[in-house]
Amino acid sequence: MNLDTRLDGRPRLDRRFPATLMAWRNLSRNRLRSTLAALGIVIGVFAIATLGVFGNVLQLSATDSLGDLGTQVVVSPNPEAGVETLTSRDLQEISRATAGKGTAVPLYTDRAVVTGPGTRTGASLYGTADPRPLFEADRGTIPASHRQGALVGSEVATRLGVGVGGVVEVDGTRYRVLAVLAESEGISPVSPDNAVVLPERAFGADGYDQVVIEARSGEAATDVARTLDTRLNVRTERVVVFEFGRILEQIGEFFALLNGFLLGLGAVSLLVAGVSIFNVMLMSTAERRGEIGVLRAVGVQKRDVLRTLLVEAALLGLVGGAVGAVLSVLTVFALWWATPIELAVVLVARNAGAVLVAFGFGVVVSLLSGLYPAWKAASERPAEALRG
């Protein structure tokens, strides 16, 4: 092993062979052992990165599927308190609470048999004068003020075989179809797919069955829900104010727990890899005990030997971590290609962070695993090392 001389006359490792090159040569002496140690890091980093990304993708996919659910509030009468419908006073309080924060849509609700050309089917009935905030048209046009005609859900239109301009009959009254509603893509307080939306005059009730509030933001929805609960439930709980954002919070808590569990599983495999590297470094330093003794006897500093051995452990972590991270990225993109997961859910900064954290964790585990064997070998007295 080449040496040069320090300014104080003591030898040190040749600058032409820095610690990284020497460490790489030492690992190359027993390629099988080094490969198996690095393989443990590969598996550990792959497990942490892949499970972390999978957890993020599941959470983001679930959140996206819920659409704008977090901005919706539903106010309905509380039958347990003897309240069957929402009064005009209730509607006034709801209008005041939502002013500037969202749109409140009063609804009549019911179930009925809807008849089409030669067939009939059951459907949910909604009565409202302002259907635009809650429904979207796939075909036809939703009127700004709903006073005549019917809006038919996609499933009902398919079962009845009707389209825009067709006629459906509900409770003996015929309505022309103004629009076929777009299919719902997430959870909603209303069920547009199996719905028929009629004008308010089709319902003979004195009060509304519920009010759906579309707030401008999740914070606005929370503020509206608190205000309504305070104003409408002064003495008794006359109405039920349900904020759908609570569902999102519960989902977020569930996925946080799931992600922690998955990352824990990956961390266990990485710790096992750390034990493997610890064993490899111990065996390597034991086999090279005489060589290290010679270096120390001719004056090579303790920190130079320590640095070289730590670089060996770091190289195992860097190579294993890089391979594990690349395999994780390839696996995630294979999942995207083979499943209906959206690419936008995969290409988020949080997923890149999970891969980088897994890679860094792998390198840190490798360094910690090699620290004690390196310190032990560098601290041994030259005379004892030469005796073997």
Rank of each mutant, 00 (worst) to 15 (best):
Q59D: 06
A99E: 14
Q92V: 13
L69P: 05
R120W: 12
V57D: 01
L86T: 08
R96S: 14
L66W: 09
T50N: 02
A99R: 15
I94D: 06
E80A: 11
T103I: 15
E84H: 09
G100A: 10
P117M: 07
V73P: 01
N56R: 10
E84S: 12
T87H: 01
T98C: 05
A62K: 13
Q59P: 00
V73M: 04
G118L: 07
L91N: 11
L107W: 04
V75S: 01
P117V: 05
D110S: 15
V114C: 04
V113G: 04
Y108M: 07
V83Y: 00
G55S: 05
Y108S: 04
G100R: 06
R89W: 11
S88A: 15
P117N: 08
G116F: 08
A62F: 10
G55K: 00
V83G: 00
V113F: 08
S95E: 15
G52I: 00
T63G: 09
I48A: 07
S95K: 15
A49M: 09
G102P: 04
E84T: 13
G70P: 05
A81T: 11
A104K: 01
I48Q: 05
L66C: 03
G102V: 10
G52V: 00
E84G: 07
K101C: 11
L86I: 07
F54S: 06
L107A: 08
S76I: 03
V113M: 07
V113R: 10
S76W: 01
G52R: 00
G82E: 03
E80F: 05
Q92N: 14
G102E: 08
T109L: 04
Q92W: 03
V74P: 03
L69S: 02
L66T: 03
V57E: 01
L91Q: 09
F54P: 00
R96N: 13
T119F: 14
A104C: 10
D68V: 08
G116T: 04
D64V: 11
Q72G: 03
P79N: 09
S76G: 07
L86C: 07
R120Q: 15
G102Q: 09
T119G: 11
D90H: 10
G55I: 00
V74W: 01
T71G: 05
G55C: 02
D68Q: 10
L91D: 10
P79F: 05
R89P: 01
D68K: 08
Q92D: 15
A99S: 14
G116A: 07
A97N: 03
N78I: 11
A81F: 06
K101T: 13
A62D: 10
L60C: 03
P79A: 12
T71W: 01
S65Q: 12
V75T: 02
S61A: 13
L91V: 08
T119Y: 13
G118H: 09
R111H: 12
V113N: 05
R111P: 00
R89H: 12
T115I: 11
F54D: 01
